[in-house]
């Protein structure tokens, strides 16, 4: 976990190293929030071997839970966070119950389809702005205090929750539960022969990953104070999957490295040209073809 610790330490020090103004902090918040979503996706892809192409839906459901509650003026984290994580987890549980019955390519497509279902639902919610999205009245309060309005507090909240998500996922992977998950990824038949059924383990992992992504969605909504259906678009799911692969499936810290690399690359190319995807797309292809093991693999070899 050394590289991830270096990144976390750098993020903690960043506000005092000349990255303390609004623009940098917004960018860093985006890095940390997407890293958290990538960590939750890593649990599925790297941990359980479940390649989900619908993970942005969980993120979006978390964000839309903030919107629905904001619309009725419920903005305290004590309510919003459990509701958002519960909603995202429940959606993952219900869709996962169907999706995990399948495997391989079918699983990829079904998660993609469920993600689209969530996307179209969000687009048709005219009460919450439909396609145009919804602007929040303000950031969440924490037990009545307006602490999150402060940029630095929000920065360290994101950092703390990211560290917590990393630690929690690492503990889950090391536990008996995580060992069954990883064993089923390697060889399902043997796990069954030893007397475990992988299905409930995978389903619980899917729901937990959904809930964590939901939390990331809450933070994303608060960071931008705006939520739109594009948060749930399938391209976002592709982006998240790319972060996980860019970082590397060999180690959980790959999710953090991948998210950092992805957001900074996107930001840098976006400054270069309006048509940055013309460069980004081929880079993605090349990194899949040649960057085996991801950034973690490069660090290990280097």
């Amino acid at each position: 976990m050394r590289a991830a610790l270096v990144v976390l330490a750098a993020l903690a020090a960043a506000p005092f190293l000349g990255f303390g103004e609004g623009y940098s902090l917004t960018l860093l918040a985006r890095v940390m929030i997407l890293a958290m979503a990538a960590v939750s996706l890593w649990l599925l892809v790297g941990g359980a071997g479940l390649v989900s192409l619908g993970h942005a839906a969980m993120l979006g459901i978390g964000a839309y839970a903030v919107v629905v509650l904001d619309d009725v003026r419920i903005t305290d984290a004590a309510v919003v966070v459990p509701v958002a994580m519960g909603a995202a987890g429940l959606f993952a549980l219900v869709t996962g119950a169907v999706a995990i019955r399948t495997s391989g390519v079918h699983f990829i497509m079904i998660t993609l389809a469920f993600g689209q279902m969530a996307f179209f639902t969000a687009s048709s919610l005219a009460a919450y702005g439909g396609d145009d999205g919804y602007t929040l009245y303000g950031r969440m309060t924490v037990l009545g205090h307006r602490w999150l309005e402060d940029r630095l507090v929000f920065h360290y909240l994101c950092l703390g929750l990211l560290a917590l998500a990393l630690l929690g996922t690492q503990m889950v992977l090391g536990s008996r539960f995580g060992r069954v998950l990883r064993a089923a990824r390697e060889n399902e038949l043997r796990v069954e022969a030893v007397g475990f059924s992988p299905y409930p383990y995978r389903l619980v992992a899917y729901a937990v990953a959904g809930a964590v992504a939901g939390l990331a969605g809450v933070l994303l909504a608060n960071a931008t104070e705006f939520v739109a259906p594009s948060y749930l678009a399938w391209q976002r799911s592709g982006d998240l999957l790319f972060m996980v692969i860019l970082g590397g499936l060999g180690s959980l810290q790959g999710a953090v490295l991948g998210a950092v690399g992805f957001v900074l690359l996107e930001e840098w190319l976006g400054h270069l040209t309006e048509h940055w995807r013309l460069i980004f797309g081929p880079l993605l292809v090349l990194s899949v073809l040649f960057l085996k093991g991801g950034l973690v693999g490069v660090l290990r070899r280097g």
């Binding site: 390649v51 790319f242 692969i245 048509h275 995807r277 013309l278 797309g281 081929p282 292809v285 899949v288």
Partner: peptide
């Protein structure tokens, strides 16, 4: 990509989509 796993295939072809959608726009 034929010899690679589905995950690599999904991502690489996703990259092709990003490129071509933007190329059409350009």
């Amino acid at each position: 990509l034929y010899e690679r796993d589905h995950l690599s295939q999904v991502l690489a072809t996703f990259g092709v989509i990003l490129f071509l959608n933007q190329a059409v726009r350009a």
